[in-house]
């Protein structure tokens, strides 16, 4: 499903503060895997996740998703790929605070290739909220929700288009232990239903919930281990 080969990414190339974030990363992630990408701060985890999410580019190597070589796609095609096949969850939730939960979840539906009537969009968004366990909070403004509820809204938004790949960058980083466990349980459940989930984290507890752990250090994959975790 995901194939990355010799990925290189440098920030501010040809400038004095150039930073080589990825130095030739290669990996393959099959459909339905639950993968944790761990490493210290600055190791290149988020950079890798951004490239997998098609929100950042790379200057060398290749990245293909479901057989599509992303380097050959234009801006519009990449946008459609992000919209249809990839869901992204961030540490700070990345929600529009003044809007309701359901309005936040509907955002990807605005950019879908197939335009749906408003009623259908609301229906799909409501379903996604119910799937993550907060259907009753649909009309509540996001700024009135707890951290755990906000992250559930973010996950609902990420899955509303039924993507095959869900990327989560430190999804529990801003949450307390109890809430973090709930969120991890939700992500695990989504994975069990067939979605490929890749979680970037520096928390070993979170990583331990994943069957496969890729350790990144200084822009390179140090370890890539699959365990027998269920």
């Amino acid at each position: 499903m995901i194939a990355i080969k010799n990925l290189h990414k440098t920030y501010n190339p040809e400038k004095p503060n150039a930073f080589h974030a990825l130095k030739g990363v290669s990996a393959e992630i099959a459909d339905g895997e639950l993968v944790a990408v761990i490493g210290k701060s600055g190791a290149g985890k988020s950079t890798l996740l951004h490239i997998l999410g098609c929100i950042d580019s790379f200057e060398e190597g290749s990245f293909s998703l479901d057989g599509t070589e992303t380097a050959q796609l234009n801006d519009k095609e990449l946008s459609h790929l992000r919209n249809e096949k990839i869901g992204i969850v961030l540490q700070d939730f990345a929600l529009i605070e003044e809007q309701s939960a359901i309005e936040n979840v509907m955002v990807p539906l605005y950019f879908a290739k197939k335009k749906l009537p408003m009623a259908k969009r609301r229906e799909l968004a409501k379903e996604a909220l119910e799937k993550v366990g907060i259907g009753e909070l649909a009309e509540k403004e996001v700024n009135k929700l707890s951290g755990g509820q906000k992250q559930r809204v973010a996950i609902a938004r990420a899955i509303v288009n039924h993507p095959s790949l869900l990327l989560a960058d430190e999804p529990t980083g801003a949450l307390d232990t109890g809430t973090a466990e709930e969120i991890m349980a939700l992500l695990t459940q989504l994975n069990a239903e067939g979605t490929t989930v890749v979680i970037v984290t520096h928390d070993p507890t979170v990583a331990s919930k994943c069957r496969r752990i890729i350790t990144i250090s200084d822009g390179l994959i140090l370890h890539d281990e699959t365990s027998a975790v269920q």
Partner: peptide
């Protein structure tokens, strides 16, 4: 800008 960032990750082109 943050909202535009959100739109981007949801499938909007930056431009």
């Amino acid at each position: 800008l943050k909202t535009y960032g959100i739109y981007f990750i949801c499938g909007c082109r930056w431009k």
